[in-house]
Write a protein that binds this DNA or RNA. Structure first.
Lengths: 182, 182
DNA sequence: CACAAAACAGACCCATCGGTCTGTTTATTC
DNA sequence: GAATAAACAGACCGATGGGTCTGTTTTGTG
């Protein structure tokens, strides 16, 4: 619901109604509505870590690992029915960043985690001698990150979830031309 | 205020208080709060068109025109004090897309406009013989679009407006390597 | 099976939300 | 300068927001 209607436009009553829970139950487990959203982010982070990190340790080459990172934002948390975790992240960023520091901290931490992993993969590609050695890991990682974010948003705006995968694979081609050792 | 706190987290009372307007005055000019946001988008669109389109007709080459498009989201509407129109767009997309069809229509129209212009610039680059002729205009344009969106978001998350320009110029380098005729 | 703590249910609360409505003031036109 | 419409002011309204509080039920433990 947060992903669909945004955090502030989803009332607790609506959440309770659709889940069949009650206020008493809810406020026993969560201090506030904001706290629920924070828990959702936390869960998202854990879920993503649990699903992606192991795959990255399977010893694939940098190319494959990058592709893995591309599919991650869509795959994680069984988001097959169009629940795009990245959109939630995006929404909470634009709604809550200036309102509550906790959101600011958590969200930028997630991004930083992704960033670090992407950097590591670029570095891996260099040592595997498939990426150009003059690349700035951080910059390339940032470009990838931007694309993943943007592609999610455009998929949302187009109301066409499949757009994301199409976009990412076309980005992949151009990116590889730019970073691979010729 | 919409950019900072999101549409739903900005109350009309707050808007009236900070602008010094009154409800009577406001509702004489706007049918609703949503209508105000739509007017903001419209204004943004016009402002951008008025500022960017003329520059695109100055007869610069495709490279220069692309750079122009990169700086557009930050430049337009005198957003020097950190008001990033793109963030507003992003926020309204995640908050209002599923709520009100008008937002959906207007926002995706803006994106489509950008897209079309970017495609034209890629095509221009081909005919100027500086971009590879095998490029798919639409795909490359989409990649650029994604990057612009993503870079805005990352600048927001990093709470560092300057990030946007840094990011875009580093993207520029990689992009040009990928699309330019060697 | 007693009994305490954990978990849940939902009536209730007040602040505030977007929006309306009845004035009053300011422009415009003849 | 009277008449009329445009523009504004702000008291007011019902609805709903997140959140509290007083119970009741369930669960674990001796």
């Amino acid at each position: 619901m947060f992903t669909r209607y945004g955090f502030n436009h989803t009332s607790l009553s609506q959440i309770l109604a659709t889940t069949g829970l009650t206020k008493g139950g809810f406020y026993f487990h969560f201090k506030s509505k904001e706290n629920l959203a924070l828990a959702v982010i936390e869960a998202l982070k854990e879920c993503w870590a649990k699903e992606i990190l192991p795959k990255l340790k399977e010893g694939k080459d940098a190319r494959e690992n990058l592709k893995l990172m591309f599919s991650a934002p869509g795959d994680c948390c069984n988001s097959s029915e169009g629940i795009r975790p990245t959109i939630l992240l995006l929404n909470l960023a634009t709604e809550m960043l200036e309102v509550n520091d906790k959101f600011s901290t958590m969200l930028s931490q997630i991004i930083k985690d992704w960033w670090t992993i992407l950097e590591a993969i670029i570095e891996q590609g260099k040592s595997e001698d498939i990426f150009r050695s003059d690349l700035d890991n951080q910059s390339v990682a940032a470009i990838i990150l931007c694309n993943v974010m943007g592609a999610n948003l455009l998929a949302l705006l187009n109301k066409e979830p499949a757009f994301y995968n199409r976009q990412l694979s076309s980005f992949e081609r151009v990116l590889f031309i730019g970073i691979e050792k010729n």
